[in-house]
């Protein structure tokens, strides 16, 4: 009877752990678990990197867990068998300490190499390898909605973005009148901040047709929770016909309508604009950099770096103001 009683405790703990693991497994399997069901190369690579990191850590932490519970169990004061081993002056000496420092160092060194490579490969500034020319989409975070401008197509949308599948999408992120924002489509790529007066690029690509949730991930005021959008990837022909249909839209994005849009509002409906004022994105960014108008030197310097994005930002990795919109977009308009 005593024996049964003594195993009931551990048994319930093991049962509870098993049940939780099962529950966690089902949650992860669920399609809603966006990070585990990536729909594009960037998000997929990022997911694989997470797995690699976890496995690296488990190499060392897994055995440590086992060791912890073994030691705690064996050397409990009630265990009379272990009492002969009791040695109050025992301390792990210099040799043991060297092992303690070296083993995690090796794991961290391995992860450091992986991190260095992955950070360069998955750098959001880095264009994706593809034979298809990227489609450019300029993104403006407003209070509290997302404006997408298609400079090549001359159209714009609010809280909805569509692009062709298997085609690199080159987002250029900025903000206007809004605090710091973060642009995130979990199934396609990790987030990058979109800020006023700066342009941060983000390259993504979708494997096939699909609809993805996107949203802001940095707190930015009362409209924060509803500042979501839908991203949709379709075949090239579907995309083209969508562009044609948007061109029929009665809405146009001029200076006046942009000012209306600029007024803070929550829960904006999807809006499609058949026309967008030329240079609107550049104007939005330059609003915050008055000195850039007169500084033609800077512009020409950026232009010369036009084709070598990597080179350009390696010179000024932290300097977003150098990442001038002219550099990326003037040529395409």
């Amino acid at each position: 009877m005593k024996r049964i009683k003594s195993i009931i405790g551990p048994l319930t703990i093991i049962l509870a752990i098993l049940l939780s693991v099962l529950a966690i497994f089902f949650v992860l399997k669920n399609d809603n678990t966006l990070l585990i069901h990536p729909k594009g190369p960037i998000a997929r690579e990022e997911f694989h990197l997470m797995i690699t990191n976890i496995l690296h850590m488990l190499i060392i932490i897994g055995p440590t867990y086992i060791l912890l519970f073994m030691v705690v169990w064996k050397y409990r004061a009630k265990n009379l068998k272990a009492e002969t081993e009791y040695d109050p002056e025992k301390s792990i000496g210099i040799f043991g300490q060297l092992i303690f420092w070296t083993v995690p160092s090796i794991i961290v060194a391995s992860m450091a190499i992986i991190t260095w490579n992955a950070t360069h490969e998955l750098d959001p500034y880095r264009p994706l390898k593809s034979d298809i020319t990227p489609i450019r989409i300029q993104v403006v975070a407003l209070n509290w909605k997302w404006l997408f401008i298609y400079p090549q197509q001359g159209i714009a949308t609010v809280n909805f973005v569509q692009f062709p599948q298997s085609t690199p999408v080159h987002f250029s992120l900025a903000a206007d009148g809004a605090p710091m924002n973060s642009f995130w489509i979990p199934q396609l790529a990790g987030q990058i901040n979109s800020m006023a007066g700066m342009v941060t690029p983000l390259y993504v690509m979708a494997d096939g047709p699909g609809v993805y949730a996107g949203r802001v991930a940095e707190i930015n005021g009362p409209g924060y929770s509803d500042m979501t959008f839908v991203a949709k990837s379709t075949s090239k022909s579907d995309f083209d016909s969508w562009v044609t249909s948007v061109k029929q839209s009665p809405h146009q994005l001029t200076d006046r309508t942009y000012n209306e849009l600029f007024t803070p509002s929550e829960n904006n409906p999807v809006t499609l604009y058949s026309y967008v004022e030329k240079d609107l994105f550049n104007k939005i960014v330059l609003k915050y950099m008055p000195y850039m108008h007169s500084n033609s030197n800077n512009n020409s310097k950026n232009k010369s770096n036009n084709n070598k994005m990597d080179h350009h930002h390696m010179d000024h990795p932290m300097d977003h103001t150098m990442d001038h919109p002219m550099n990326h977009h003037m040529d395409s308009q």
């Binding site: 990070l35 990022e46 990197l49 991190t115 992955a118 995130w184 990790g190 987030q191 991930a217």
Partner: peptide, 10 residues
């Protein structure tokens, strides 16, 4: 790891 952090940050 920065690229992994892009996904779980915030």
């Amino acid at each position: 790891s920065p690229p992994a952090d892009f996904q779980v940050h915030n």
